[in-house]
Simulated assay, not measured.
Amino acid sequence: MQKLEAEVVASIRIGSDICLLRLKAPAIAATARPGQFVHLRCGEGLDPLLRRPLSIHDSGDGELTLFYQVKGRGTAWLSRQHPGSKVDLLGPLGRGFTLVSGRRLALVAGGLGMAPLFFLARQARELGNEVDFFYGARNSRGLHRLEALEDLGIRLFIATDDGSAGFRGPVTALWEKQLKDNHYDRAYACGPRPALAAFARLAAAAAVPAEVSLEERMACGFGACRGCVTALRDSRGEKYYENVCTGGPVFDAAAVCWEG
């Protein structure tokens, strides 16, 4: 883990409340893995007190790219930073996705769950994998960076709840349709918890090894406060609790207690 002052290279608003931030952070970019996150101080001094965890959207050439939604004071402050500004940064943090090579992979993203999966898709393609990327949102306005995704050399499948783009319905239903006629060696997902629970059930039924990136509120970001625990089951079926920030945010989908 590195702590540094990262310089803002670019800050771009790509939707009404969606931003893309590029930071110059060579020490973190050199070791970042898909699925990991960074912890940012989003404000002056200690206001707001808590840092904000953001998934690493992409990494390379000494830069980190973050993709996030403006939700409160902290992210609103972050969205106002301009090239040359400095942002206090900790990272890379957490456990990332398991990378493989030469396989057929399914990546399933719900809404902002696209954030960590973009980085995974790029690295997966560089490792010679065939990637089917399933991307869902409430409507077409919730779909972002479609051209950038297609430029990765993936097969992109779109779903919207209202049918304004692509398949009408949840992205997990679209993936379920593809599972009927296609085999995947591994699957990965990030998005709202109900969508992840559905994804995990489908993966288990199809005997596809699967990992999920959990979206949980975090405080310290490195396991000291126990504020982001999630329930898991071990190989014997025994229930236990793990910090999402250190044990995850990526977990084996079959190990997560989706019922709570």
Rank of each mutant, 00 (worst) to 15 (best):
V8A: 02
G60P: 02
C42T: 14
F133S: 05
Q36N: 15
E7S: 11
K180R: 10
V212R: 02
E242W: 00
L90I: 14
L105Y: 06
R226C: 06
R168G: 14
L4S: 05
L90M: 09
C228R: 00
L156T: 03
L21A: 09
L143N: 12
G260L: 14
E211P: 08
I158E: 10
A6R: 11
R201S: 11
G15M: 06
L152K: 08
C19Q: 02
G94Q: 09
V208G: 05
L143I: 08
M218V: 02
F157K: 13
M1F: 03
A109H: 03
P192A: 08
R80F: 02
V108H: 04
C257Q: 10
F251M: 13
R233A: 02
A204H: 07
G136N: 05
L40N: 15
V8S: 07
C42D: 14
G102E: 11
F37M: 02
K177S: 07
F133V: 12
P209Q: 15
G43C: 04
R125P: 00
P53F: 05
Q36V: 11
D185L: 08
R145P: 06
G166E: 11
G166V: 14
C225G: 15
T65D: 01
I56A: 14
D17I: 04
L107C: 01
G227Q: 03
D161E: 05
L179Q: 10
N139A: 11
V100W: 11
D58I: 01
G166C: 12
G163D: 05
A106N: 08
H57D: 00
Y184S: 15
A30F: 04
A106I: 08
R141D: 09
R73D: 13
A255V: 13
A205I: 10
L174N: 03
S55M: 07
L112I: 08
L49M: 02
R155D: 01
V108K: 01
V244A: 00
H82P: 05
D181Y: 02
E126I: 06
A32Y: 04
E7L: 05
I18P: 12
L90N: 14
V256A: 10
L149W: 15
F157T: 04
R41N: 15
L196V: 07
